[in-house]
Design a binder for these strands. Structure first.
Length: 299
DNA sequence: GGGTTAACCTGCGGGC
DNA sequence: TGCCCGCAGGTTAACC
């Protein structure tokens, strides 16, 4: 499932393959894929055709491609617009030859004026999507697409403030895993890397956030940063063909997971079987010895 | 207003 | 063989 490292792999691919190119055509194959673009498919295409993509940006699990001002408009007149993308759980952004046969779950395709590889949004479960949005200023002063101004900085951003995160956790009345999955507190962390970071920090997922010490929060952030850096170096995590980079290739970090998906396998630190528990309509994996359940637990 | 839950969606695997 | 059910999970609307 695409979390920050997987999305960053895709961003790097897009930066290489689409920056500087001008959109020539847009085909929307499934309206749900652009449901966040509230003015519909025709307007979506109209706002993209003829626009040059400037670069590829990311915050947490969101990607966006800033667009140069339309031909005839005065450059730098406003904050501009961007093509925003979220991969959801099964979304892929692929660079494909225009002649390549359509993928089974092809939802949107963008062709370019140079006639080279086109950009395809493929999404089996249609939880992801694309939209053209105005750029706005987030609470921390960062320029991002309008609908994601509530998304917090991710741990790979220099502006992520560890001390502010510690205080935010102390204001909350919830469990640490819920907090790690809350994209308005810390972005980019999903179910897999939350479990991996907590395993590295030796903390149980139901630990009440207001009881965490500075040292423990520091261990969690170290865990998040380390697991994401390792996953990025491995090209991301994939369990099947659902997550791939822009060339359709899978990462191999799933071989390095210590907790996630390893029910009944021995913990690599202490040998205790990893446990799986239902949590928020999904699963949590942890070592019951290294990550003992707190006396007071918050789910 | 903060915390929590359910719904959205498709494919796959296990059980019967 | 084929049907049904549970599971995978990021985000958000709706609820408490």
């Amino acid at each position: 499932m695409p979390e920050l490292p997987e999305v960053e792999v895709v961003r790097r691919g897009l930066e290489k393959w689409v920056a500087g190119r001008t959109v020539a055509g847009v085909r929307v194959g499934h309206p749900r894929a652009i449901r966040r673009h509230q003015t519909g498919a025709e307007d979506f295409a109209g706002q993209l055709v003829g626009r040059r993509i400037e670069s590829a940006c990311r915050r947490g699990k969101y990607l966006w491609l800033p667009l140069a001002a339309p031909a005839g408009a005065e450059d730098g007149a406003g904050p501009g617009e961007a093509l925003l993308a979220h991969l959801g759980m099964s979304g892929q952004l692929l660079m494909q030859s225009p002649q390549a046969p359509a993928e089974l779950h092809l939802r949107v395709r963008l062709s370019f004026a140079d006639g080279g590889r086109e950009l395809r949004f493929v999404d089996q479960r249609t939880f992801g999507g694309l939209a053209v949005e105005a750029i706005a200023t987030a609470h921390d002063g960062t320029e991002v697409p309008r609908s994601i101004t509530h998304i917090a900085a991710d741990v790979l951003e220099p502006r992520f403030d560890d001390e502010r995160f510690f205080h935010a956790l102390h204001r909350r009345r919830t469990g640490i895993k819920r907090a790690l999955l809350d994209q308005s507190l810390i972005s980019g962390v999903g179910n897999i890397y939350a479990d991996e970071a907590l395993w590295r920090a030796r903390l149980h997922y139901a630990r009440p956030t207001e009881t965490l010490t500075r040292r423990e929060v520091s261990r969690i952030l170290d865990g998040v940063r380390a697991v994401m850096a390792d996953a990025l170096a491995a090209g991301g995590t994939s369990f099947d063909s659902l997550y791939v980079n822009v060339n359709g290739e899978s990462g191999y970090f799933d071989r390095s997971l210590e907790a996630y998906g390893r029910t009944d396998e021995p913990c690599s630190r202490c040998g205790t079987p990893i446990r799986r528990e239902a949590f928020m309509n999904r699963s949590s994996y942890y070592c019951p010895r290294c990550q003992p359940r707190p006396r007071r637990a918050r789910w």
